[in-house]
Design a protein around this nucleic acid. Structure first.
Lengths: 198, 198
DNA sequence: TCGCTCACCTAACGAACGTTAGGTAGGAGC
DNA sequence: GCTCCTACCTAACGTTCGTTAGGTGAGCGA
């Protein structure tokens, strides 16, 4: 089996993600990223056209990961299943993406705002579209009465921020496994909306 | 009635809080803060000893606001009341502090990590102590069976990150009043843990 | 062996950074 | 009228920032 060896560009993005999570984009210098790779700051520019370019690549990759996971999750649940089942699938997918690569996810969650102008607008649109999956699903559950009374937008924001928080605190060798965390968050989320344990 | 006119130092901290929320501490320069007050960067140093000093003041003030609000909230609930009632009071207090001054709260939630060394450690200890109120209460509810099965630490983190998110998105003249937001978050939170609408 | 690609280097650029030094203008209190 | 105090100024400091220019050496296919 051919092992996928990362390109130099990918190595750089991985190192940058870790630093961006730890110190933020503005708090991380190009020379910091280079130091993590044991090279000089200027050498990075053989692989990268600008610091913001690195941020942009990371954010885009993360956005795609969330979108793909959500699509697959929703496709795997029978149409006939109720909103709680769909919500649980969405939550598990979201948590899965975060715990698979918390550095990547964290940049998507927090550092996108350091993108300038058009890139910022584009990623915001993708974020909105992604989050709309949660909003629409919750709104549907509310109108059908499967979810307990709440404001749809507030409820969606409540869920998404709670989930996104994982990207801040999760560390791979922590007390709880990825699966355990997904279980916990799925239960808490569904219960917050339905009042029932799934 | 004597109107409290803010000292110059307080004006500076208010302007700094707003910028720190918008661009982050590292993304905000001393000259940015000064520009918001229509003065030169160097002039700030008549009122302030360093940029980090401003961050420190803001973070400390926010920490105190959260602590005081939580103490008052818990004191106002009869000892005999159950854990859901206590949790609801804690949540309402927390949300109240955030919506009263989202810029201040946001700095406490996100920007404390730019403090260096001992200050960082001190604020982390205060944060821990504050969050322990939530953790202990939830653990108690779990052991008494008033809360549905969950990991106490995960549940506390779930609640706190969901609440703290408000500091990111809340704007005073938004669609929902402060009271409405508190209602919504109290309901969602208590339901996530008990499975019942309060 | 030649030439090409890849990964890195040193040196340096102008701009922005946090911060200090030393000075001024206006109002309050004696 | 003099002295303070508050609030600001200009000028400049050393450092760090993102980035560019130009060059080196190792490995590899032809």
């Amino acid at each position: 089996m051919a092992v996928q060896v990362p390109t130099r560009r990918q190595t750089i993005e991985t190192a940058a993600s870790a630093l961006f999570r730890e110190r933020g984009y503005a708090g991380t210098s190009v020379r910091d990223i280079a130091r993590a790779l044991d090279i000089r700051g200027a050498s990075l520019y053989a692989h990268v056209t600008s610091k913001e370019d690195v941020l942009w690549s990371i954010v885009e990759r993360a956005a795609t990961a969330f979108e793909v996971a959500a699509d697959q999750a929703l496709a795997s649940v029978p149409r006939s299943a109720g909103e709680p089942a769909h919500l649980e699938a969405l939550v598990r997918a979201h948590v899965g993406v975060i715990t698979a690569d918390p550095e990547l996810a964290n940049v998507f969650v927090h550092e996108w705002r350091h993108l300038s102008g058009p890139r910022r607008a584009r990623i915001l649109a993708r974020r909105d579209a992604y989050e709309a999956r949660f909003r629409r699903l919750i709104a549907r559950g509310l109108s059908r009465g499967t979810f307990a009374h709440a404001d749809a937008d507030v409820a969606a924001t409540f869920v998404l921020t709670a989930l996104n928080g994982i990207a801040t605190w999760y560390r791979p060798r922590g007390r709880l496994s990825r699966g355990r965390i997904a279980d916990q968050f799925a239960a808490l989320t569904v219960r917050a909306l339905t009042g029932e344990t799934p």
